[in-house]
């Protein structure tokens, strides 16, 4: 498969995000890829909007449904939610949308901070395969991928994104 340039997909996502933001909107990046994307989007969005945009970071490790099978992720990262969640329009930013289970876990965690007015989901790539009634609202691209493969988003030291596809050998990876 010829893979698209993730920087171009990020531009697509930016075009959809900008009109969706009002003064009550906050962004929440999902570690790790979603946080990279959010940090690249923020300066551009803030310049176009002419105001600061509050943001947070989550990995929802404590809310995942595979804890009993796999235990706690060894490198779970502290949640960073520096704003009052109550009444906010939250846009979640993630890199790859697959089963919808991460989104479910993140939403559960957010509700333990308060009651948001709404939650939307923006992803760089929707690879298909949702196992829950959860779908992204904004998408850089729809790129269906077989279950035995997985997208890997990486970022080099210059902050440039790179996309690759890897084969899932152990049969449990790719739960994104």
């Amino acid at each position: 498969m010829k893979l698209p340039d993730p920087e171009q997909l990020l531009e697509n996502l930016y075009q959809q995000l900008l009109p969706a933001i009002d003064e009550n909107t906050v962004l929440v990046g999902i570690y790790t890829g979603g946080v990279w994307l959010m940090e690249k989007l923020l300066p551009k969005l803030q310049a176009a909007l002419g105001h600061e945009l509050a943001f947070g970071k989550l990995d929802a490790a404590m809310y995942r449904d595979d804890y009993a099978q796999r235990g706690l992720k060894t490198k779970s990262l502290p949640a960073y939610i520096p704003f009052d969640v109550n009444g906010k329009h939250i846009i979640l930013i993630d890199d790859i949308f697959y089963t919808g289970r991460t989104t479910r876990a993140v939403m559960n965690e957010l509700f333990d901070y308060g009651r948001p007015a709404s939650i939307q989901l923006a992803v760089l790539i929707n690879r298909g395969g949702a196992q829950l009634p959860v779908r992204p609202d904004m998408t850089g691209a729809d790129l269906p991928l077989a279950a035995q493969q997985s997208f890997e988003l990486s970022m080099n030291t210059q902050g440039r994104l790179h996309l690759s596809v890897t084969d899932v050998t152990n049969g449990v990876s790719g739960d994104v």
Binding site: M62, Y113, G114
Partner: peptide
Amino acid sequence: IDILDTAESFVGVAEREVKKVPL
């Protein structure tokens, strides 16, 4: 070190509206 790093994630739980996680 795993225990100490994991504990970092739990420090913030007590500062939220719901001071509980479902693990």
